[in-house]
């Protein structure tokens, strides 16, 4: 495991959100958020690459 520093106020908000959402710990909640964000960015990058091909073919601007 590695440690990451985040703003204490953000950590408190994450802790409250994790409890409200039923996560077993704030660490689990933060790890889940990071996983989802990585996935979202990957999808964005992939769709941008698809856009490049479609743009070349004249189907998107």
């Amino acid at each position: 495991m590695v440690k990451v520093k985040i703003d204490p106020a953000l950590f408190d908000r994450a802790k409250r959100a994790a409890e409200a959402a039923g996560y077993s710990s704030v660490e689990e909640f933060i790890a889940d958020c990071i996983e989802k964000q990585i996935q979202r960015l990957k999808v964005e990058q992939d769709e941008a690459a698809v856009s490049d091909q479609l743009r070349g073919l004249g189907y998107v601007e």
């Binding site: 992939d46 690459a49 698809v50 490049d52 091909q53 070349g56 073919l57």
Partner: peptide, 13 residues
């Protein structure tokens, strides 16, 4: 216009 490598665009599609 340039085309993406076939394997790459196949995966993306």
């Amino acid at each position: 216009k340039p085309a993406a490598p076939a394997d790459q665009i196949r995966h993306l599609f």
